[in-house]
Simulated scan of single mutants.
Amino acid sequence: MKKLLALLFFCHVASPVKHSLLYFLTATSGVPDFPQFMGSALVDDFQVGYCDSNIKTAETKQDWRKFMKDNPEHLDYYINECYESQHFFKATIDSLMKRFNQSGGVHILQRMSGCEWDDETGEIRGFNQYGYDGEDFISLDLQMLTWITPKPQAFITKLRWDADKARLHRNQYYFIHLYPDWLKKYVQYARSFLQRTDLPSVSLLQKTPSSQVTCHATGFYLNRADLFWRKDGEELHEDVDKGEILPNHDGTFQMSVDLNISSIAPEDWKKYDCVFQMSGVKDNLITKLDKSVIRTNWGKSVRTVESGNETYLSVFCSRDEI
Rank of each mutant, 00 (worst) to 15 (best):
R319W: 14
E321Q: 15
R125W: 11
S262Y: 06
D70A: 08
A41R: 01
L168A: 04
Y173P: 01
R125Q: 14
A27D: 05
R99A: 15
L205P: 03
L42W: 04
M278E: 05
E306G: 08
E84L: 09
G299W: 10
P209S: 06
S263C: 10
I286K: 15
E120Q: 12
F10R: 11
K270H: 13
D258W: 03
Q172R: 09
D198R: 03
D63N: 13
G243R: 04
V240D: 00
K98A: 11
T214I: 06
D273P: 00
N297F: 13
D70S: 08
H19N: 14
T252G: 15
D141N: 15
F228V: 00
F37I: 02
F276R: 00
C11N: 12
A6Q: 07
A58C: 05
S211N: 06
I286N: 13
H107M: 05
R196W: 08
Y78W: 14
P16W: 06
A265T: 05
R295G: 11
T296M: 14
E234I: 15
Y50V: 03
P150C: 08
L259H: 01
L109V: 04
W147N: 04
F100G: 01
S262M: 09
S263W: 09
P35H: 01
Q206F: 04
S314L: 15
F9D: 13
I138P: 00
N309L: 08
R191I: 13
K165G: 04
L222H: 08
D164H: 14
W182M: 07
F34A: 03
H177V: 12
Y132D: 09
G299A: 10
G280M: 09
I148F: 12
Q47H: 01
K242E: 01
D268V: 02
L4S: 01
A58T: 01
I245W: 01
M1P: 05
V293M: 10
D164R: 12
R65N: 12
V202H: 02
S113P: 06
D239V: 02
R303V: 13
S279M: 15
W229H: 01
G251K: 06
D258F: 03
D283E: 11
F193S: 07
N80D: 14
G243K: 04
